[in-house]
């Protein structure tokens, strides 16, 4: 489903974020990308949704070379991938409902679908009682759940999450990870980055380990080893 082909990324300041990285991710997999801060984890995820361009190499989503897409076609790709970020990135002037509805509307879904799907997906993440709250009225864990609901509502083939638990306490982290597992169980491919050892060890799923931009380990049922 995802194929990185000898991908390197050098930023303007000549820092090397990714160095000749290649791997494949199959549909339905749950993959964690681990590594220290600055190891290139976020860059790797950003490349999947064309937020960053590789300096060398190619990134494929299914059979499409992500970076050959024109600016106009990129939204189509992003609608097939749900994204969750460490800093949540909710729209501050929109309520929980509107934040999620926005993604559906942007994807051209009908008003009826919006009215029926948003409450449903909020129920899935346990936030159906906070539908009309604004982001500033929600706790960190609640905001992240809104973000996950937003990522899920268009039924994406792939969910990418960049440090989704980075700003959360251990209990909330556990709850969020349970949601990710549930999502993966219903067939969605999940890629997340983290530097939380506890999260990885408990998951027992595939782990890619990055060190200074290089892919140093790829373990089928990995643990956090650095």
């Amino acid at each position: 489903m995802i194929y990185f082909d000898k991908v390197s990324k050098v930023y303007f300041d000549k820092s090397l974020a990714l160095d000749d990285v290649s791997f494949t991710i199959e549909p339905g997999e749950f993959v964690s990308v681990v590594g220290h801060s600055g190891a290139g984890k976020s860059t790797l995820l950003k490349m999947i949704i064309a937020e960053e361009k590789p300096t060398e190499g190619k990134v494929f989503f299914e059979s499409v070379d992500v970076h050959s897409l024109s600016h106009r076609r990129i939204p189509d790709l992003r609608r097939r991938v749900g994204s969750v970020f460490q800093d949540f990135r909710l729209l501050p002037n929109k309520t929980t409902f509107e934040n999620i509805a926005f993604t559906m509307e942007a994807a051209g879904r009908s008003d009826e679908e919006v009215q029926s799907d948003v409450p449903h997906v909020l129920e899935l993440v346990g936030l159906d009682d906070k539908m009309w709250h604004f982001p500033f009225e929600l706790s960190g864990g609640e905001r992240q759940r809104v973000a996950i609901a937003r990522a899920l509502v268009n039924q994406p083939d792939l969910l990418i999450a960049d440090e989704p638990t980075g700003n959360l306490d251990p209990v909330t982290t556990h709850e969020i990870m349970e949601i990710f597992k549930k999502i993966n169980d219903i067939g969605t491919t999940v890629i997340l980055t983290t530097h939380n050892k506890g999260v990885i060890d408990k998951l027992g799923k595939r782990v890619l380990t990055l060190e200074r931009g290089r892919l140093v380990r790829d373990d089928k049922e990995g643990r956090y080893v650095i």
Partner: peptide
């Protein structure tokens, strides 16, 4: 500007 980039990242096209 942050909002605009978030909108892009969740798949909204420019005209929208």
């Amino acid at each position: 500007r942050e909002e605009i980039s978030v909108m892009r990242l969740v798949g909204a096209d420019n005209s929208y």
